[in-house]
């Protein structure tokens, strides 16, 4: 289970202090598939970054499974936890252009110091699962947007993380490929993974089990 209590986060830029999260309370059960919505600038990405240990929070409490994530978590520790527990899917895919689909998927295991053979074996299985078993050798520029996003999902899954965090994963896709990607997400969900999707689209939100609405730096409605 993931729980956030009274999470605050502010940014200071150009000596202006922007209070983005003002006491977010939230808990997500293991294996749940939830979506986060809210107007632009409401702090959805900020919240997701905190959940994903890419960013720290000012105060409050964050528990990730058995692990207490303190506000001042060190960068090295965060990198390690991220690698073990969290998979990311981004709006713009973020595949490395000079690596094949297979190599892209296998990359997180490299940082776990797993051998190339084992890495590639698992990457192949995951590409198969997202329906790209025939495309392992393709380079990213040889794949469509939807295919790229499915590669990214396979990459997010390869470390067998506790949860997948996706920030507007379909934001750059047309409706047909959006459906493909959502199908994959639902399949992943069926394997028992926790999935959190930030989205602007009600269609997407409706396909999740629960919607969390952010407004004025707080969870307005669940």
């Amino acid at each position: 289970m993931i729980s956030l209590e009274g999470i605050h986060k502010h940014y200071t830029s150009d000596s202006r202090r922007l209070h983005v999260l003002k006491g977010v309370n939230l808990s997500i059960d293991d294996g749940e598939m939830v979506s986060i919505m809210g107007s632009s600038g409401s702090g959805k990405s900020t919240l997701l970054n905190i959940l994903g240990l890419l960013d720290t929070y000012d105060h409050g409490a964050y528990q990730l499974g058995d692990t207490v994530i303190s506000a001042g978590l060190s960068e090295a520790k965060a990198a390690q936890l991220r690698n073990r527990f969290i998979g990311f899917v981004f709006q713009s895919f973020n595949l490395l252009p000079f690596k094949s689909a297979l190599e892209n998927v296998a990359l997180p295991l490299y940082y776990q110091k797993i051998g190339r053979k084992a890495r590639n074996y698992r990457a192949e299985k995951l590409l198969d699962m997202v329906g790209l078993g025939e495309r392992t050798k393709n380079m990213p520029n040889e794949l469509s947007g939807g295919q790229k996003q499915r590669v990214a999902i396979a990459r997010a899954l390869i470390t067998d993380p506790r949860m997948i965090l996706a920030d507007e994963p379909t934001g750059a896709l047309d409706s047909a490929t959006t459906d493909d990607v959502m199908t994959v997400f639902k399949e992943v969900h069926r394997t028992g993974k926790t999935i959190v999707i930030v989205t602007h689209e009600h269609d997407i939100a409706e396909q999740t089990e629960r919607l969390i609405l952010l407004k004025d730096g707080q969870v307005e409605r669940e």
């Binding site: 994903g52 890419l54 960068e75 090295a76 990198a79 390690q80 991220r82 690698n83 073990r84 990311f88 973020n94 490395l96 990359l107 997180p108 940082y111 776990q112 990459r155 470390t159």
Partner: peptide, 13 residues
């Protein structure tokens, strides 16, 4: 961007 991605995927400094 690549470095940022690698970090997100677990690369250490």
């Amino acid at each position: 961007r690549e470095i940022g991605l690698r970090k997100a995927l677990g690369a250490t400094r």
